[in-house]
Design a protein around this nucleic acid. Sequence first.
DNA 1: CTGAAAGCGCTTACAG
DNA 2: CTGAAAGCGCTTACAG
Lengths: 341, 341
Amino acid sequence: MKKTNVTMRDIADKLGVSNVTVSKALNDKEGVSDELKSKIKLLADEMGYRINAAAKSMKQGLSYNIGIIIPERFVGRTQSFYLTFYKHISKVLEERNYSGILHILSAEDEERLVLPRIYYENKVDGFILLGQIGSEYVEFFKDNDIPRVFLDFYTDQSDIDSVVTDNFYGVYEITNYLINAGHKDIAFVGNIYSTSSIQDRYLGYYKSLLEHRISLNHDYVIFDRNEKGEYIEFELPDPLPTSFVCNCDEVAYNLINKLEKLGYSVPDDFSIVGFDNDIYASISEPKLTTVAVDVEMMSKTAVDLVIEKIFDKDKTSGRVLVKGNIIYRDSVKTIKDKVKA
Amino acid sequence: MKKTNVTMRDIADKLGVSNVTVSKALNDKEGVSDELKSKIKLLADEMGYRINAAAKSMKQGLSYNIGIIIPERFVGRTQSFYLTFYKHISKVLEERNYSGILHILSAEDEERLVLPRIYYENKVDGFILLGQIGSEYVEFFKDNDIPRVFLDFYTDQSDIDSVVTDNFYGVYEITNYLINAGHKDIAFVGNIYSTSSIQDRYLGYYKSLLEHRISLNHDYVIFDRNEKGEYIEFELPDPLPTSFVCNCDEVAYNLINKLEKLGYSVPDDFSIVGFDNDIYASISEPKLTTVAVDVEMMSKTAVDLVIEKIFDKDKTSGRVLVKGNIIYRDSVKTIKDKVKA
DNA sequence: CTGAAAGCGCTTACAG
DNA sequence: CTGAAAGCGCTTACAG
């Protein structure tokens, strides 16, 4: 049992020095002899001294806490993506001597434009907002001058500092890969009017086609969901392509199941790629070749950005793109030398 | 843009009262006329007043933060269970005017017995520890007198306050359900020496058997993993039972796949139940009848316990069991009236 | 290299 | 019903 409530004063008294000297020693500041400094540190340890963050915080006007906001709809039984994000955020925060207060934003609060209590209580120095958030809420958030960075958030609202995956480039690269494997008849699967992120992925696919002088076939754009985001039955084109670029792994997973029910086999009859490298990429048969979002780099970027903004209110970054990495697995077959029927 | 740094003093000055009165009004304490109180609240709103949690915290010696600790191995791509837990914890915390600082405990810190920095900085009033944690770490944690509650944590270490799912009762109930559906030849799937939680589930199964005068057949205890927790090939008994009680959904999912590869069909040839109601219960074909952990009630219980302990250091609760609920889906077939071959 | 003084913004206990 | 005083435990700026 360690004694609670050991203060700098207590340490100072025992050593016959002032609390100022103790503060300087414990914070490794100038103005204390090395000898005294280590004596103080030793005694602090012995006495089980723990700094009072609240006192420091009040004096400095800084809490060394960052609020992480995740809308509750991303916290489902099948959604673990954002916990992984939080893990990396938390790790970087730790390295910077910050802590993360994780706030799950309820649908109700999001609708009624209620900011988290940690804002009204000045418990955090800045915010990282994870995932897609209603644009009204974002506007409302912007009315306050607290530093904030949006992570994995797509919007056309300007003057927002955000860190996002390079959707465009990722799909561009993976489509190139398909073409290099001999594919020419390549479909894109996704509702290209549904989200900005799907749109960018589609455009990456299109750019790869353009570069290889493959003309865009509108029958090869296969919708996966309606405007509400609900999945719909795939309407497969006739004739079928040899490969499918899916806008996400879950849809790739669904497509594989659909094709196999129709008696086809992946990758023998069709090559399929996804995006996200989430659980669906691993539970599908065969496992998916896909684009892995670089969660680690994105998290690090977001944390460093928000901390910079805390110390320089005028700092802006705009939209920062982080490149993903292709993960090669078993859902693509090279057909370079195959004679097509 | 709201002005930052509005203090109680500023409000007091504008109204020609003292900051004490403002403090009382804003905290709804006695000693201010209703008229003045509402005038103060109105002006506070208008001026964009936000309380300084650090100042309050220092004065009261309470941070109104709770540290939530999750070992990093529970934060994988396929593990979203604990984020769901956090969501419910966070919601209750919110209702109690607390905030949650989520700390992901690295494997390294767990091994080296490093407590989270939030402890050493007095940033939290108590801890909720989620999931299984090394016993040395637990012992080390106990050396400190900060309130702590273990959630979804199984151990034989005594004098630990914990909130756990009633494994025993859950499997007891779901085995009863199988028996009522006409099953008599029921296997249990799990390594009964592996974890305390699997052991309890096994004993619930056994109790149900006992109650129905069905004798325990040791061939019907099928191991799913080795001592290290790595999954192994099932060794199916001969003759086969008509149903399987699996110690968790993931294993039930694996078993279904194994049986279907062998040419059997579930639930026509075999009925199968799981435990946890996690993602494997939903992605399996057919969907699993299983026991859902009552995450909401467990979270609420844990939060209320830790808060009680903050205000009454001597409060202990011991091991609190929370009952799960059977979720009926498609993996069980009634064979009551079926003539057996 | 060391320390006395002031102050961060609240709340508590007490006096009127 | 209202307020003056003290103090929570630090850090900062300045003086020696």
